[in-house]
Amino acid sequence: MKKRSMETSLADHRGKLIRSIERRLFLKQGLSLGALALLSGCELTDGEGVQKMLLAMSRWNDGAQAWLFNSTKLAPEYPESAITKPFPFNAYYGEDEVRLVDAASYKLELSGLIREKKPWTLPELYALPQTSQITRHICVEGWSAIGKWSGVRFSDFLARVGADATAKYIGFECADDYTTSIDMATALHPQTVLTFRFADQILPPKYGFPMKLRIPTKLGFKNPKHITAMYVTNEYPGGYWEDQGYNWFSGS
């Protein structure tokens, strides 16, 4: 192959022909730059059609994740030495604003498609058979941390109260006004645990006293803290962040 310098090969083409090509080139580059500007600017991204498309894709991703979810696949568990210290605090408010829940008057309210709707007190919940796990908590922001949580296996609790396991959703209300909901398949996963202890201590307020639903197969914001009420339903309940645009399934 004969090699020529770039300059000469370019010079060969400097003629009347190149001008039309350059014009076209300019036009095309201009168009793609315009498309880029539209994309990153607000014109297109704030457009109602685009928002609808993105939400539709998020729903589609809910379906894809439900399909990918394997109810027997376990999240990796770690040795005690892997536990992150200090475990990060994360909420939509500051650490000094953590809601304090009064243990003595606390009651867990149940509603919806549940047979036994009698509220549960903490001593009653503490008396249930307990299990422990050391798993990785992954935040939708990207960071992760390993912690140890203990409590009652959620599927055991749901069976005990006679929750309709054929229902689609379980919704949660929390003492800090937070709301979220999960799918039944995840609720029944063996590692989904209604926890009362963190690192073998009673769950401190900053980690969700009196209870946090620990779901190692879901992102952190799907692990509600300070739970005061839960309900089983077939009507999509959403949740605070989910209603703002975060993906509902958010499974790991």
Partner: peptide, 17 residues
């Protein structure tokens, strides 16, 4: 200014679409 989505949830929606 070089990013897309406006905030984390918006960016995640774009990324996963």
């Amino acid at each position: 200014d070089l990013t897309l989505g406006g905030w984390l949830a918006g960016a995640l929606q774009w990324h996963f679409a």
